[in-house]
């Protein structure tokens, strides 16, 4: 079986600093992989490498069987990779929850086309899966931090991705909300058969959900635990 995500000896330089200095990470389909590391260890950079936003100065990145250095259309590939950012969007742009979630479908809907009823169905299914369907007509800015994090997750699910990238999705939440979000993530991971890559600074939060855990330290990765 080929890997959904494969990073081989990846080095990434941002300005004058080499943030990643030999990272090796593998994630098979349906695997839940966690990357643990202190703040500033390069976790977010690693996710951006997987998404093709940062290009490695050295090493190879392969996503869904495609070598990113040879990929002609990153936009097309990104339609199958959903991202839940660390911090929910905080600008006070007036937008309803259902519209923010529907954005996850925009790439798949394509240019010069409007979302069809089936796209709205996917968006509502995603909102139901994370428990925010009742807020669908509210403005994003009217919701709490935890609820906004659920919007980001629902948007990612509405995208119907093969890969889910989660960047510290519980950082700004209280402990009850943290557990709730992690349960939802774990549940949709299994239900939808996703490959999930989650980065976090908290090893206790992810240990019970992960199939595999890497430690990111001094720009290098170490496999610390695996179910296999």
């Amino acid at each position: 079986m080929h890997h959904s995500i494969e990073l081989c000896d990846v080095h990434v330089r941002l300005g004058n600093v080499e943030v990643l200095r030999g990272v090796n990470v593998e994630a098979k389909p349906w695997e839940f992989v966690s990357i643990i590391g202190a703040n500033g260890a390069g976790k977010t950079t690693l996710l951006k490498v997987v998404n093709g936003i940062f290009k490695p100065s050295l090493g190879q990145v392969s996503v869904l069987g495609q070598d990113l250095s040879l990929c002609n259309s990153l936009s097309a590939l990104r339609k199958d990779i959903a991202v839940v950012p660390q911090k929910p969007n905080t600008i006070q742009f007036p937008i309803r929850v259902e519209e923010a979630v529907m954005m996850g479908r925009y790439g798949k809907v394509g240019l010069l086309r409007n979302p069809k009823p089936s796209d709205w169905e996917r968006a509502y299914e995603a909102m139901e899966a994370v428990g925010i369907k009742q807020f669908s007509k509210k403005l994003v800015s009217e919701l709490s931090g935890g609820e906004q994090q659920k919007i980001a997750l629902a948007r990612a699910l509405a995208q119907e991705p093969q890969i889910l990238l989660l960047d510290e999705p519980t950082t700004y939440l209280d402990s009850a909300s943290r557990s709730e979000i992690m349960e939802i993530i774990h549940s949709v991971h299994h239900q939808r058969g996703l490959t999930t890559l989650l980065v976090s600074h908290d090893p206790h939060l992810v240990e019970q959900y992960s199939d595999k855990t890497y430690l990111l330290e001094d720009g290098k990765s170490h496999l610390t635990w695996s179910k296999e």
Binding site: A76, R78, A82, I91, M103, G104, Y106, V109, L111, R155
Partner: peptide, 21 residues
């Protein structure tokens, strides 16, 4: 013609990028 793409970019450029726009 491109309302939804513009909406995503004004909302968050990085989100627009990650959904494949």
């Amino acid at each position: 013609l491109f309302f939804k793409e513009i909406q995503a970019i004004l909302y968050d450029r990085e989100i627009a990028l990650t959904v494949g726009i």
